[in-house]
Design a protein around this nucleic acid. Structure first.
Lengths: 344, 344
DNA sequence: TTGTAAGCGTTATCAC
DNA sequence: GTGATAACGCTTACAA
């Protein structure tokens, strides 16, 4: 008689040691007195006589059989798993993205293999290697290594970073978001706008935020100041810059567009320390649409990224059957919401 | 001549369609003019003549060969991947946990298969099924289904929920955290403490937070009020409760311990609306140690969970070779930090 | 409609 | 030490 591997609720499990023998299709076939091929057909929903199907299903249940998707993948070359490569899932933007991608994938029957890279280009490359060995069906990556090496056969979707025409990139409409921020600030009475940026030194889609902002200001005949920093420099230069632009307790700017919400809250704190009031003296708009908790309001006035749609679009592009006419860049629409750092 | 699958940087990839033929060990063997077994040995770091090894490695590089870990797993019954089952990776506590577990696993050479369940007990069970088919080497789960069915053969570590002696559970020292909160509040001059809780109706380790708080109050001869709600009830009862305990603009409590930081910030907002000042009129302590961004301070005075250590411990327990003497519950030490909602 | 057998890419057991 | 060969669990022609 076959030794069956029953499943137990976690509460029932005690230290019973069974022999290491997960039941296989062969076991099921024997238990159901049918041929191996028949069992396979049942589990692939192919036509099989009704009573055969029943016998197989019952036998499988009795034995606690589960298909071995590794063995299946070996045969079919499809593993129904995709890799998600993110710098860090702690950041609210990334974690929301991860959530969206993970559930979009699971809805389509795919597993998510999560790799975090801590912004390290070499770790990024190692992840790629690792998941390629794992024979994933595709990769969604938000990476900073401009020279990532990837099997060209493997579907790849990039988030927020454009590589080449043949690698689809999905991101927010960063340029439009910058324009929107400028429009709002001006509309709210600002006349001396400032753009502040800190981020990676490797170029990315989000650089367009500042471009859009400046462009919109210029278009309205307003001159705009910008300060763009790299992560390595830290926040200190902002502090100095702001302090040096205060005259008689008055800042030279009355509206600041920050490249992220994270920066906006930092700048807000700096302004407070400098004795400036937000939004009375200076209005602030960030970018991302971060909330503290899901039910909370925004942590600052902000340009909201449609993270959910970015996730869905990325997944859709990655899993698309016909890969001949993929767009090289899709920008999703952003929106504005007040969050206490503007005068509404 | 073999058709080799070179790797390209993402930027170089153009729409070149190659034939679907990832190189296999057989190809490498032929390319290097050695036997198949020799190639296998090279990739498993077994003893092989130095020049053979070199030839194989060069051939592999030429062909862009990568081991197929599916095929390997089929043979060896180890996949070097573990499943992480979380309700939702958007919540800061969960995302930090995910980050810690993911990197601890990757450090040990394991991949993380992430599944999010949205607190749905059935989704949790489906995840378990799915990852079992995937032949993961183990599961780390933070789940709410009290009757999860799992293959008893498969190593399982539970976070924050105790199932049975044979299923290791790792969590913070919730009871101790409650005591700590009580001690702090009392030390800071509170005399009329209140405990507020909202959460799942299925019991979990975090229930001990309130128990510890009450116990510590009792021990010091102070009577303590508690209000414990289920998620379904929403925050409204808190609002009513607080409003009904105000007399002449004065709240009946001067120190509140909230079961999470999320609740604490909500309660703080409610108190503000009711015209009460935090921390002047009422002091507040939360639980978790949440920050808005990694560099920021805490969003409220809080009992900090050692999330990093929970992650590491969970992984260590899961991957432990000798599974005969596993602890059934390990509680990790918490600490207190002020965050603006207490008088320090 | 059902059964048979070859083979997916790897590892492991043997003789050599 | 190296090299053929038989599994691993499954899918899939193809034969019955």
């Amino acid at each position: 008689m076959e030794l069956s591997v029953k499943h137990f609720t976690l509460c029932e499990v005690n230290s019973m040691k069974q022999k290491e023998n997960a039941p296989t299709m062969k076991d099921v076939a024997r238990e159901a007195s049918v041929a191996l091929g028949t069992v396979s057909k049942v589990f692939n929903n192919l036509h099989v006589g009704e009573d055969y199907r029943r016998r197989v299903e019952e036998a499988a249940k009795r034995l606690g059989y589960q298909v071995n998707s590794y063995a299946r993948g070996l045969k079919t070359n499809r593993t129904y798993s995709v890799a998600l490569i993110l710098p860090d899932v702690t950041n609210p933007f990334f974690s929301t993205l991860a959530q969206g991608i993970c559930s979009a994938l699971s809805q389509k029957g795919y597993r998510t293999i999560l790799s975090t890279t801590a912004y390290d280009p070499e770790a990024e490359q190692r992840c790629i290697q690792m998941v390629q060995q794992n024979k994933v069906d595709g990769i969604i990556g938000l990476t900073y290594n401009p020279a990532l090496e990837v099997d060209p056969q493997l579907p790849y979707v990039s988030i927020d970073r454009y590589f080449s025409p043949s690698v689809p990139c999905v991101s927010s409409d960063n340029f439009g978001g910058g324009q929107l921020a400028a429009g709002k600030l001006l509309e709210l009475g600002c006349t001396r706008p400032l753009f502040l940026r800190i981020g990676s030194k490797v170029p990315g889609e989000s650089d367009k935020r500042g471009d859009g902002f400046e462009s919109a200001c210029r278009q309205r005949g307003i001159s705009c100041t910008s300060l763009r920093l790299c992560d390595e420099e830290g926040y200190a230069p902002f502090q100095d810059f702001l302090a040096s632009h205060i005259e008689e307790g008055r800042l030279a700017f009355d509206g600041i567009f920050c490249v992220t919400d994270a920066l906006a809250v930092h700048i807000r704190a700096m302004l407070c320390e400098l004795g400036l009031r937000v939004p009375e003296d200076v209005q602030l708009i960030g970018f991302d649409g971060i909330r503290r908790f899901a039910e909370d309001g925004f942590i600052c006035s902000t340009i909201i990224q449609p993270i959910e749609r970015i996730a869905e679009t990325g997944v859709e592009l990655l899993l698309r059957e016909d890969r001949s006419n993929l767009p090289s860049l899709v920008c999703l629409p952003v929106s504005y919401a007040p969050g206490g750092t503007t005068k509404e």
